[in-house]
Design a binder for these strands. Structure first.
Lengths: 293, 293, 293
DNA sequence: ATAGGTTTTGTCAAGCTTTTGTACAT
DNA sequence: ATGTACAAAAGCTTGACAAAACCTAT
């Protein structure tokens, strides 16, 4: 991430304007730099090291004392000058770190920055969904606890529902979104609903563990253009498989997440949305006639 | 959120103009500051501490005794932290205070809190639009400067255009939104467009000072369900009044803001939207047939 | 023009300007060259070897020591790689296509991808600014309409102001950024401000068409380390030329864009920033040593 | 506000090693 | 052409020092 180690101390000094002695002092005292060494023991610095020295200089110019300047230079994020940007990989890593520390305000800050820089679609498909997958994997490997998973999903759920505010309003086609009976994981469903909303749909959202009767009753009243039922695990499908055809006759029914794969396997005729919520939303949305005035 | 502890007492003194001895006295006597310490025992202050000192100075300048000033400075911070107030009145007051101080970051924070709690519609009609009106009034009374108006509208515009991201996507009816030729104030137009977006419309936005030829050309390409032309002042209407009927024959044309009142007066047959952007958007949207699947 | 495809050490020396002894030393010490041999044992070099020697020389001139220069010359490809493959040309073409179609959502998608791949600096100087220039050219040639220009600048402005969120926060030096009276094009000013932000500055931004009184008043309150006034056209400078010296005495004033060239021509003593916003920001930032509060 | 002591930080020096261009002998 | 030698330039480590900035307590 920092580039090859190519400068000796003299060159770093020339480029930064900091004397070699001082560079060594900063290394020794604050660990500002950690150069690799040549075979003979000479320090070798990378372009990233040069950046770090310059950052340090900026803080010094700003009136900070060396020790504090160095601390800040070492953890760039703290200093709140972070330009929002999206490197999905590192954002996910940061998000993971904040979840590990149960640091909600940091997590919110990361999401704030992200949303300031980039569309909701991209946040969902490049950060949120991959992050959830990774968290699941880490949990499976025993590296993350149930507590972490709970924490992460409550933070993300709150944030996404914040974005969702008002999503039932308007003139677009209506999608009724719910999780299958027994299913507690809502995030996939919410992400899908948000992506539809970004495409002008109106959303009626029913959350986790929704009985089919509820769905049917609501649908009778709302006459949605699409009913989306979601579950992570495919096992939620079997218990209600015999009721889906009736539902599907009357409305257009789609299954999302693990349920989609199970439905495919079971030969159900419903629309399957097994993939990334944003992509599937795009696909579904493209297949619906557009509104006219 | 006070930030990292990075200033030694000398720097805090330089930035606040309060001597180090006095800063130490305030700490000892009133507990105004509670700096962390370096390994060697030096005081380390955060940017938040600097704010507190400045608040203290404000009270002192106001003629208050040091003890009282300190108590108030401490209490004020307490209040800011505890009360995530949603009372529109006080939110507008806070927003005004942050604009008076040209404090972008505080203004953003207020808007963050607001948007986390409340729909975009509400933010627009309860806070942003009234705030702009008040700012205009204060300006007319000589209490606010052009500088404040410029600053405020930059911040709000950025924020609202942030919310706008992706508003061209989807399946809803298309609204072409622009400001009349010569009109530089975009905020009303953006607010209206956002409110339409919240109702599922697709937006094509062309910004300030848009020539009618431009509008016509874009409309030919996009075939919008509605063309919205906005201006604060009614004077922008006369120069183009003779061209509106032709436009209105081919598409549905609406005028917003001051332009609406002027158009009414001039007996133009276009749709007039003189009121609050959100209400007008609701009205317009209700009158357009909804999309069906 | 094409020389022999192999040459002996004397010829390589003449062409590269490196003494034969040194060439042999580089071969022995760093394995920089691996010449074939003539029947009699003479070294035979290829044109590729000459390239490698020249590369080595480039690095040496760049201040690197011989061992490092050689290592880099040997894995040239490795180094090129760390510029993430981004073809600015084609991105700009795509952007142009989406603007031609007034397709906001596609434009946002392109920008999302871009921000995921490279820094804000790069987006500005490789894509946004060149794109705007091209759009201007296409407009001059009658290939793009005012509608397209309006549309594009709305989208880009929203995006850039999104990235701007929080740019007033922090501890860096303050830059007051505004467009000259009469100037409506803000994108250059915003780009410059973003580039400064990425270098640790705090930004107070006042937008298009800002009266000098406004600037002065805000400056009195903020005491910025730099005042940046921008305009595309040089004509905005004359009307206010007589007021600049007074401003410049009290604060450090810079003119950006077309205004910079006009100011130079008029013999004004202010700092001129005629070039690419990112480069100029780098230059300014290096030359303004300290923030004072 | 002052006095007397401590911490922080940039700089310097001594003594030794590594690196590298050039020179020379075979 | 090869191998060795050499000396200047640039680095390394350890240790020390003094000015500036801070501390506490009176």
């Amino acid at each position: 991430v920092v580039g090859p180690s190519v400068f000796r101390i003299g060159e770093l000094s020339r480029r930064s304007g900091v004397s070699p002695e001082l560079l060594r002092a900063w290394e020794r005292r604050y660990g500002l730099l950690d150069p690799t060494r040549s075979k003979g023991g000479l320090r070798l610095y990378s372009p990233g090291d040069l950046d770090r020295v310059r950052t340090m200089q900026r803080y010094l110019d700003g009136g900070m004392a060396a020790a504090e300047a160095a601390t800040l230079a070492l953890r760039e994020e703290q200093l709140e000058r972070d330009v929002p940007r999206l490197d999905p990989e590192s954002v996910r890593r940061e998000l993971a770190a904040s979840v590990d520390a149960f640091d909600e305000s940091r997590a919110q800050g990361i999401l704030d920055n992200l949303l300031a820089a980039v569309t909701v679609d991209t946040v969902l498909s490049e950060v949120v969904m991959p992050f959830l997958r990774e968290l699941g994997d880490r949990w499976a490997r025993g590296e993350a606890s149930v507590a972490h998973e709970h924490f992460a999903s409550s933070v993300l759920r709150g944030r996404m529902l914040g974005l969702a505010r008002g999503w039932g309003r308007g003139v677009g086609p209506i999608a009724l979104v719910a999780c299958l009976p027994g299913e507690q994981h809502e995030l996939g469903a919410i992400a899908f609903a948000l992506a539809l909303r970004a495409r002008g749909w109106r959303i009626a959202y029913f959350g986790a563990d929704t009985p089919l009767d509820t769905v049917e009753q609501a649908a009778t009243q709302l006459e949605p253009s699409l009913i989306v039922l979601s579950s992570v695990s495919g096992e939620r499908v079997r218990p209600i498989a015999d009721r889906l055809p009736a539902l599907n006759r009357r409305w257009r029914v789609a299954l999302g997440g693990g349920a989609a794969r199970a439905a495919d396997a079971a030969g159900l005729e419903v629309l399957a949305l097994p993939g990334d919520p944003v992509e599937e939303a795009e696909r579904v949305s493209a297949s619906v006639p557009s509104a006219t005035a």
